[in-house]
Write a protein that binds this DNA or RNA. Structure first.
Lengths: 337, 337
DNA sequence: TTGTAGGCGTTATCAT
DNA sequence: ATGATAACGCCTACAA
């Protein structure tokens, strides 16, 4: 408060730090970046000056010089998407741990906006971009430039593009199996939107494979993964088979809707109807009984994606899923004779 | 460490565009930024060259030169916070509409991390920062520098600092009143954490004022706004008054928990017990019956915050709340005689 | 160990 | 209407 004029809140530069210590800007830069070439005494004095002046390197200038910023992009179908939020949470913390900041974007349900966002992102020369529930297309690659690594999370298209996901087919197979093992045979599937086929198709295959394995008849209706969409789909399921003893919903929101709707109709869950969800989002805990679900390790997936972008992980990662039994599943009310 | 030698995909610069058209970089810059000083013919040729070369201005260089970027910071208590997600959604879309990108950060439940994030943000010379559910402190102001505007959303401390919020006291008063008008007198309050006093204290005052206005006795227990915290708090409420006919939860998560817990205990909602939530997050729709709630216009609040930062709105904004009657509230089972 | 100088891509000032 | 030129703050050879 002695020498600082109050007028224009000038940002401290590296040169001012240098001047104060009586060294050149280059030396300060070396200290700041840990590049060898300074004495211990210099280091201490520089650090002290930095502290006193509250100096912080200008990321814009640094990025311009080095032609890359410590920015990571994250694109989600919607900013408020519950599943994406969990993944973003992992991305954010891991990015932070590596000294990176996170830029937020939105792809829209059909990835319409992705290219636009990637172009904006490119202008900031980010270290990488995480695409949540979105497949990488050639247009996206082009939009962001070939220098910026991309990774898809919670979705996978072959092993060509970098991705972090679970084995959806296997997870759905095992989820179905867990219901079958409890004695259920009439298991209705609440599938997701055809537009998110990369996630839903494998899950549907897993369900069918399990059903066929025991000679049970698959029964499927399609929603769009959201809560509201489940009610009419459920209705259609019940119309086609009023004796269903279990519902396998390919999203927790649809699972939650199934639990609520069943109870509304006077069915007890799980005594009269078992419901199994998918994803393990917080929604699964917001119904009663809490939703049993096929869990994806969403937060770790976000973390892994960041490590992959930063070059510290394999190009394709299949993380382990697991079946979590909460209160919404139980033995079949009428075991087959 | 080892990196294959491959052709470096050079980013197109303003000079290359200029060269192609046969003008100077300055002229291209003028066209790009709409600064007067070029002929119509030049404009068209520049635009065409930009298109052909896929030129995009480097935001880092631009920011360095102008000393401000088209970046907006958003800090939420947690990245996956449901209420914050809704606000972020509004922030993101409005920012985008104004040509700004969004940087994401986390304050932690007690704003411990806020200063650290703000320091990082400052290095990118953002146009402003939105603080969700977080009050602005002098430390924060200092961390981000006096050039960068801050705004609190969904929280308000007097009228000193910029903010966008509802009138929490009035909203809670009216919420309580709506229950009273349905005949309820024994209304238990599920309050939030003391650490988020800026939000909770006014709401609690509103509840008490309404109760006193009709001579009813306030009855309060405290959770931490999250789902799980509501169950023990509810228990305490019932212990203190087993005849409660309504619960007013100061968050939707606690409200959802109350609906579920009541039903688990064999109470019908709303026939035996009415439950009113607060905030109008998606959680309110994930229980059955769907939760009646005191709604904050979360998305518009995010949008307003951005406009305020960009200098297009008053420094303090009180947005309208409203009471939404869904299925979880109804007349009291035993009207007073 | 330390300093000097050049330039990253852009905008703004001053000429022409 | 347009061009040359000088920064913005930083990093990094290259010198010393």
């Amino acid at each position: 408060m002695t020498q600082a004029e109050q007028e224009v809140p000038h940002m401290t530069t590296i040169r001012e730090v240098a001047q104060r210590v009586g060294v050149s800007a280059a030396t300060v830069s070396r200290v700041v970046n840990g590049v060898p070439g300074f004495s211990e005494l210099t280091r201490q004095r520089v650090l002290q000056a930095i502290d006193e002046l509250g100096y912080e390197p200008d990321s814009l200038a640094r990025g311009l010089k080095t032609s890359h910023s410590a920015l990571l992009g994250v694109l989600a179908p919607a900013v408020s998407d519950a599943l994406a939020s969990q993944i973003m949470s992992g991305v954010e913390s891991e990015a932070r741990a590596h000294g990176h900041a996170v830029m937020l974007g939105r792809t829209g349900s059909g990835a319409e906006l992705a290219v636009e966002y990637l172009r904006t992102l490119r202008a900031y020369r980010p270290a990488g971009v995480v695409l949540i529930s979105t497949a990488i297309t050639p247009e996206m690659r082009r939009a962001v430039g070939s220098r910026v690594p991309l990774v898809s999370v919670a979705i996978r298209k072959g092993n060509e593009l970098p991705s972090v996901a679970i084995d959806d087919e296997l997870a759905a197979y095992e989820g179905t199996m867990s219901l079958l093992r409890s004695g259920h045979r009439r298991i209705g599937l609440l599938a997701g939107d055809e537009s998110s086929v990369l996630v839903n198709a494998p899950r549907e295959r897993g369900y069918r494979r399990a059903m066929r394995a025991v000679g049970a008849k698959p029964l499927e209706e399609r929603g769009n993964s959201l809560y509201e969409s489940a009610i009419p789909a459920l209705q259609r399921l019940w119309q086609r088979d009023p004796e269903l003893t279990a519902i396998f919903a390919l999203s927790d929101e649809m699972g939650a809707a199934a639990v609520n709707e069943a109870q509304r109709r006077g069915l007890r869950v799980p005594e009269d109807l078992s419901v199994l969800g998918f994803d393990d989002t917080p929604t699964s805990r917001h119904v009663h009984p809490p939703l049993s679900t096929v869990a994806q390790p969403l937060v770790p997936m976000g973390e892994s994606a960041v490590r992959l972008l930063l070059g510290q992980g394999p190009r394709n990662q299949v993380l382990p899923h697991r079946i979590i039994a909460r209160g919404s599943t139980g033995p079949t009310p009428m075991p087959p004779h």
